[in-house]
Amino acid sequence: MRLYDPAGNRLYLNAEERATFLAGARRQPARDRTLCETLHFTGCRPSELLEITPARVDLSGGAIAIRSLKKRKDASGAARIVFRTLPVPPDYLDTLNTAHGIREAQKSRKKAAQSIWGISRVWAWKIVKRIMIEAGIPDGPQCSPKVLRHGFGINAAVNGVPLNMLQKWMGHAQLSTTAIYADATGKEEQNIAARMWGLGGIADRLAG
C-alpha cells in the first residue's frame, strides 16, 4: 500500500481537497450525497460501502458497522467474517436517515437487510469521480474513489487518532499497514510541525 505512485503523484486527498469534495457532495441529490459522505466519514472501501444495510446503522449509538471484505482466516485456516464499527457525526446520520428512511427500514427484517444504495461498484465509482471533477479537484491519480480511504487515514493520523484505533476503524489486519499514515507528508506534515512550533512558542514564553 502506497501514498504515492512511482511518478511521485499523491494517491490521497489532502485536507483542502477533502473539504472541497465534501462541500461538492452536499450539493448533490440525496443518494449521491450520502454515498460520498459515507466514504468521507468512514474511510471504507467502495465495495464495503455498497454492502452497508439499514441494520448496520446504529442511529442512537452514532455508529456504522462495516464488513471487512479483505479475507481473514482463523487459527484453523478457515475464512471468517469480520465487522468493524466506526463512530460517525450525528448530522451525517440524520441526513442518512432522512434520505433513506433508515429508522423505518429497520422495522422490517427484509428492508433492514437490503443495501442502502443498491447500485453497482462501477456506478458508485462514476458518481464519486464526477463529483470530484465538479468540485475542481484536478483529474489525476488523486482523483479517484479509492483515494478517499487514504485521505481518511491521513486525516485521522494528523489529528492524533492513535494508530491502534485507526487500525480498527480501517479494518487492517496488521498495525504495520496502518503505520503508513503516520508517515504524513506535504501540507499534512506541516500541520503536525505547526503544533510543535506552537507548543515551542508557549514553552519559550514561559521560559522568558
Rank of each mutant, 00 (worst) to 15 (best):
R121C: 09
Q142N: 11
A75H: 14
K146M: 06
L69W: 10
G153K: 12
L86A: 06
I102P: 08
R45I: 07
K107E: 01
K110C: 13
A157R: 12
L96F: 05
F152V: 10
M165S: 14
T53E: 01
E134T: 09
S120A: 08
W123A: 07
P90W: 12
P89A: 02
A157Y: 05
A63Y: 09
G160R: 15
Q114W: 00
L163S: 13
P138K: 11
G118R: 01
I66C: 04
W123M: 11
R84P: 14
G151T: 10
I81V: 09
C44H: 04
F41H: 11
T95N: 07
I133M: 06
G151M: 12
V82P: 04
L69F: 11
F152S: 14
P46Q: 15
A124C: 06
N155P: 09
N97C: 00
D94L: 15
V122R: 10
R121F: 12
G118F: 03
A63K: 10
D32K: 03
P138S: 12
G136V: 12
L35R: 05
R67K: 13
L96W: 02
C36P: 04
L50I: 02
E48A: 05
M165A: 14
I131Q: 09
A55L: 04
R31V: 00
R31N: 00
V158Y: 11
K71E: 06
K111T: 03
I131L: 07
R80Y: 08
K129D: 09
P162Y: 14
K73F: 15
K129W: 08
G153M: 12
I66Q: 00
G62V: 15
A124H: 07
N97H: 11
L59M: 15
G43E: 05
G140V: 07
L39A: 09
P46E: 03
L86E: 09
D58V: 02
R149A: 06
I64E: 05
P145M: 12
L35N: 02
A105K: 01
Q106Y: 03
A78P: 06
W125C: 05
I52N: 03
D139Q: 05
P87W: 03
L163Q: 05
I119G: 02
I52M: 06
A113T: 05
A157H: 12
G77N: 13
S76I: 06
R80I: 14
G62Y: 10
T53M: 02
I127N: 05
L93I: 08
R103K: 10
W125F: 14
S68R: 15
K71F: 01
R121A: 07
K73T: 10
S120R: 10
W117D: 01
A105F: 00
F152K: 13
W117A: 02
K71C: 09
L96T: 01
V161L: 11
R45C: 06
K146W: 08
F41D: 02
V122K: 15
A75V: 09
S68C: 13
L163P: 11
V122G: 12
G160A: 09
F152R: 10
A105P: 04
R130N: 05
V158D: 07
V158L: 07
A124I: 08
L148C: 14
P54F: 03
R33H: 01
T53Y: 01
G118E: 01
W125E: 08
S76D: 14
E51K: 03
F152P: 08
V57C: 09
V147H: 07
C143A: 09
G151V: 10
Q106L: 01
S47W: 11
T85D: 06
V161W: 07
N97S: 08
R109W: 03
A99P: 03
A135G: 13
D139G: 13
K70T: 02
